[in-house]
Amino acid sequence: MNYFIIMSLGIVLNGTVLSNSFAQTEPLGPLMSVTEFTIKPGHEMQFREGIKAWKACYLENNGDWTWRMWRRQQGEGSVFVLASDMANWAEMDKTDESGKKCQDLATSLINPHVEKATSHVTRFQLGISKGNPLTEEIIRVTFYDLDPINGHRMMEVVKEVVEIRKNANMSNLGYWYQWLTGDPESPSFHLVMPYKDYAAMDIIQEGVWQTVEKNAGKAKRDELQTAFRSSIQNTWNYIYTLDKDISNPTK
């Protein structure tokens, strides 16, 4: 991601790298840098205008960094999430000359309107995720904080459920990410479910456990469901909408 704008906003990546306790059977997926901005009360319009000004400057200087800015629809306060893909860790060594030319705009027009910001790095999970790129503008994100003792079971269950769905000619439901950095309140994984619009959320679809029971039997459903629930310490979710005016999702 463009660390120049993040650092000019005074944000420091200060997470603890989590040990990967899950067997790696798939090639490593790309990384995603995620920065959550909590905006000062009453400053949302100024924050957005500051991002617009920075974006215009960046594009005028032929910047090629891409990002999505999502606005959280529920929860306390005004929260935006900046998400940017990275092929690997080496991208963090790069400098962005186009971003340097717009530093003053970030400092003067964006930073004053941010109450706090936290940054983390996640990794896309191949094999268990949808294969096509995310193009929808509404997402529901579910976060999973793993149980200290049984947490290792979660991905085992997810992979088994994915295999059952695959054998039933059903596609993967969403996009899984593992958190590689985190603070004490960070999740271990999150799942992104895309929707073309809010009306799509009204469509009742067959539940995951219904699919498992239909294709693998009730005993297998009970076994996997019990293991999954015991692997999770806490879970929560929010809906986010893409703010296109302050995003730059394609080159």
Rank of each mutant, 00 (worst) to 15 (best):
246 I>T: 04
124 F>R: 10
65 W>P: 04
194 P>W: 10
164 I>N: 01
116 K>Q: 10
52 K>I: 08
194 P>E: 06
134 L>K: 12
132 N>A: 12
130 K>S: 02
25 T>F: 03
225 Q>G: 03
163 E>Q: 11
165 R>D: 11
14 N>G: 04
131 G>W: 13
236 W>Q: 03
1 M>Y: 14
207 G>S: 12
54 W>Y: 15
230 S>F: 04
15 G>E: 00
92 M>R: 15
61 N>Q: 04
32 M>D: 07
159 K>S: 11
246 I>N: 12
110 I>Y: 14
208 V>P: 01
24 Q>W: 07
63 G>A: 09
160 E>V: 04
217 G>V: 06
94 K>Q: 09
186 S>A: 14
7 M>Q: 09
230 S>V: 06
111 N>R: 11
40 K>M: 02
90 A>Y: 11
241 T>L: 00
60 E>F: 14
81 V>N: 10
125 Q>M: 08
160 E>N: 15
164 I>Y: 01
232 I>N: 04
205 Q>K: 13
232 I>L: 07
88 N>H: 10
204 I>M: 10
55 K>S: 13
22 F>L: 01
140 R>G: 12
19 S>E: 01
47 F>P: 10
161 V>Q: 15
107 T>Y: 07
218 K>R: 03
179 W>S: 12
210 Q>W: 11
191 L>G: 05
124 F>G: 07
151 G>F: 02
78 S>L: 14
240 Y>I: 02
94 K>A: 04
8 S>C: 04
51 I>C: 07
75 G>K: 07
131 G>L: 02
227 A>C: 01
50 G>F: 10
34 V>I: 09
85 D>W: 15
125 Q>G: 07
28 L>M: 07
191 L>H: 10
85 D>E: 15
118 T>F: 09
12 V>L: 00
205 Q>E: 12
225 Q>Y: 13
192 V>K: 13
89 W>H: 14
169 N>P: 03
245 D>T: 07
235 T>D: 07
61 N>R: 08
154 M>L: 09
175 Y>V: 04
239 I>C: 07
54 W>P: 08
68 R>Q: 14
84 S>C: 14
248 N>M: 05
234 N>E: 11
117 A>T: 02
246 I>R: 05
181 T>K: 13
154 M>W: 05
160 E>T: 14
240 Y>R: 12
193 M>P: 06
147 D>I: 01
32 M>K: 06
163 E>H: 02
196 K>H: 00
250 T>D: 10
97 E>I: 13
135 T>E: 03
142 T>P: 02
47 F>W: 08
205 Q>H: 15
170 M>S: 02
126 L>A: 13
223 E>T: 05
116 K>C: 07
238 Y>D: 12
154 M>N: 00
28 L>C: 05
122 T>F: 01
2 N>R: 07
171 S>W: 05
68 R>A: 04
119 S>R: 03
131 G>C: 03
155 M>N: 06
152 H>S: 00
59 L>N: 03
120 H>C: 01
119 S>E: 11
219 A>T: 10
182 G>V: 08
174 G>P: 12
45 M>C: 02
122 T>D: 12
206 E>W: 13
